[in-house]
Write a protein that binds this DNA or RNA. Structure first.
Length: 470
RNA sequence: CGGGGUGUGGCUCAGCUUGGCAGAGCGCUGCGUUCGGGACGCAGAGGUCGUGGGUUCAAAUCCCGCCACCCCGACCA
């Protein structure tokens, strides 16, 4: 029964494979307006779990959620020179409303530094008001020239944090704390995606920032994806929006601000980091459905047994779903769950049941094993953790196998055809960066030899990680 | 914006060169047999062929205009 593959194999055409997964796993559709995205329930479920995990970490870091308007006066954007220069080409601007042309055009937020800056200025009077730690979950609009579902859409969902601090040191420390304790921790421990962390070069920096930190992950086609960024904004926005406070000594001081964000792009990263030729693979800690209990056929007692097992698993703290759709063939349903990447399938059929057993299949390795009905619920939680760990290990091994240390710009160019290249920043420099840019290769981040974030770009020994990217 | 391409049932596309009853696969509906890896048989539903004009006895097909989308490049979470 050699059927045509459900998906275009990754090795045949990776972008096509990605499109196929989005469609077949029912993750997203193109919206009616160019570059927009409809996120389907299963895809949105992945995002909701990301939101829950990231939000909890943000709160642990002391920030509070708030909400600022979608519409921003155009004049706000122009107050910070680099910011307006960076964003104006991709702004969506409202010029008419209520049947009339507006006196001042309204910008649909591409990011909220400006409005939030305006209100920070209002709310901050004293050093006692600092630090002010805000976050918002919102949609933003950036009129990108080329779009791809989840990776780059005209409108996307994200979280944007904005903070104000009394000192530069405090601001820098907070941006770093978010980067490590929220982003890196979430990506490695929940998404099972290893990330390189480091500083962006001046070329790659956020418009208006004095320092940008990034998390860079490798996709299965060897290209890099920026998964999140944290920015030190220095006093650029504080000056533009007059965010000042009275210090302990009674003098007026200018605040130091940060901003940091992660978006629905992470869903795309998850797909391209873990997906294989059979579909998506969702790490258990993220999965909204960790285990699906499948009724193979509606024979005597099978549905009852499966229902009882699902209830037992739920009681054991497992996010479980029962699939008793016996009007659809077993093969079809098994394929569908595989496409959706549910970490574990428990197959309940009369044959196994006669021996008091069920079949447990793990999605990451396709490995099947028999387990007794009695032991299932007690063994699944450990199995899920095992899958989580081996997915991170596999992704890390893949990244390391596709990361090479090189000594020259030419070698870096070659290596970037298949993955990441590490090259001494002192060797590459801005000249080398410009040379690589001609071949669409960019510096993803600069880090210390031990993989940590350097204090400055020019620390001796700094390594540049270069790659092609999304 | 520069270069290339495509618009035909829900999806992927064939048909266009050489005008002559609008097709295939998948999906969908019903019935039956199935059900341990995308089941099978039979019977069905579903399309103003992107759009406006022109040529013609006759246009998906030829001609002209317009629109949309896709791919490659410059921009980006």
């Amino acid at each position: 029964m050699a059927k045509a593959p459900v998906l275009t194999p990754q090795g045949t055409d990776f972008p096509r494979w990605y499109q196929d997964v989005l469609a077949k796993a029912e993750l997203a559709d193109n919206g009616p307006v160019r570059g927009t995205m409809v996120i389907r329930p299963y895809g949105y479920g992945l995002w909701e779990r990301m939101v829950a995990e990231v939000d909890a970490r943000i709160k642990d870091a002391g920030a509070e959620n708030a909400y600022f308007p979608l519409f921003i006066p155009e004049s706000y954007l122009t107050r910070e020179a680099e910011h307006v220069e960076g964003f104006s080409p991709e702004l969506a601007v409202v010029t008419h409303a209520g049947g009339k042309e507006l006196e001042e055009p309204i910008v649909v937020r591409p990011t909220s530094e400006t409005v939030i800056g305006e209100f920070m200025a209002k709310w901050i009077q004293s050093h006692r008001d600092l630090p002010l730690l805000l976050n918002q979950w919102a949609n933003v609009v950036r009129w990108e020239l080329r779009t791809r579902l989840f990776l780059r859409t005209s409108e996307f969902l994200w979280q944007e944090g904005h903070t104000a601090h009394a000192t530069e040191v405090d601001a820098a420390a907070y941006a770093r704390q978010i980067h490590l304790n929220v982003y890196q921790d979430f990506m490695e421990n929940v998404l099972a995606m290893p990330v390189f962390i480091g500083r962006k070069t001046k070329q790659e920096r956020f418009a208006g920032a004095v320092n940008t930190l990034a998390c860079e992950a490798i996709m299965r086609d060897g290209k890099a994806l920026q998964m999140a960024t944290s920015h030190e904004l220095g006093q650029n926005f504080a000056k533009a929006f007059d965010i000042t406070y009275q210090g302990v000594d009674g003098t007026q001081q200018m605040a130091w601000t940060t901003s940091w964000g992660s978006s629905t792009r992470m869903v795309g990263g998850l797909i391209m980091c873990h997906g294989d030729d059979n579909g998506l693979r969702v790490p258990p800690r993220l999965a909204s459905t960790q285990v699906v209990v499948m009724v193979i056929r509606d024979d005597e007692g099978v549905v009852d047994a499966a229902t009882a097992l699902a209830a037992e698993l739920k009681a054991a703290g497992v996010r479980v779903r029962l699939d008793a759709r016996t009007d659809t063939s077993f093969g079809r349903r098994a394929t569908d769950w595989e496409l959706k990447g549910v970490p574990v399938r428990v197959e309940v059929g009369p044959r196994d049941l006669a021996n008091g057993e069920v079949t447990v299949v793990r999605r990451d390795t396709s490995e099947k094993q028999q387990t007794t009905v009695a032991r299932l619920a007690s063994t699944v939680p450990a199995l899920l953790e095992d899958i989580q760990a081996s997915m991170l290990a596999e992704a890390t091994a893949f990244r390391d196998a596709h990361t090479v240390e090189v000594a020259t710009v030419d070698e870096a160019r070659d290596a970037a055809q298949t993955g990441f290249a590490k090259i001494a920043w002192s060797t590459l420099g801005t000249d080398g960066e410009a040379m690589l840019a001609r071949d669409a290769i960019t510096v993803r981040c600069i880090q210390r030899p031990d993989g940590t974030i350097p204090e400055t770009e020019d620390e001796p020994g700094n390594i540049a990680i270069v790659a092609r990217s999304y």
